[in-house]
């Protein structure tokens, strides 16, 4: 079986039965950030902890990427095989809005305020034969 590895360390807990988005929270002002960062953008403190931000949220805004982006976009697609994808900000229970690819890619499927579920999905094949995994959100029934 192909080995699967995260596209970047520290973005989400995985593999796990219920993967969570990972971020940081400031020990002083309690503001959260994604991805986790050592400095707090709100108060400037350097004391932050890595925390789970949750795996469900609500859609705050959305759009659809209809054309294949130039580099630095790096997928396995070609201009011919490119599939439009949704992008949105999802409000997380951890207290931050996270930008993410969305599984839905038509306006009919997307609505501000709808509940969204975190998924860890294959993004592209790595040069060494492994499969790079990224996070995305998909619309779910309440």
């Amino acid at each position: 079986m192909t080995q699967q590895i995260p596209i970047h360390e520290g973005l989400f807990s995985w593999p796990a039965s219920k993967p969570q988005l990972l971020g940081s929270r400031c020990r002083h002002c309690a503001e959260a950030a994604f991805p986790a960062q050592p400095d707090c953008r709100s108060c400037g403190s350097r004391e932050t902890d890595i925390v789970e931000l949750g795996d469900r949220g609500t859609l705050w805004t959305w759009t659809i990427q209809t054309f294949m982006p130039k580099q630095p976009y790096h997928s396995d697609e070609t201009e011919q095989t490119f599939t439009p994808y949704g992008v949105g900000y999802v409000e997380m229970p951890g207290g931050v809005r996270v930008e993410s690819r969305l599984q839905q890619n038509t306006p009919e499927q997307l609505q501000i305020g709808m509940p969204m579920q975190l998924q860890i999905v294959p993004f592209r094949n790595h040069e060494d034969g492994s499969q790079l995994m990224t996070f995305c959100f998909t619309a779910v029934e309440e």
Partner: peptide, 11 residues
């Protein structure tokens, strides 16, 4: 980090 651009969110 590179993943942000690679996954198509830096537009």
């Amino acid at each position: 980090d590179e993943w942000y651009g690679e996954t198509g969110m830096m537009l």
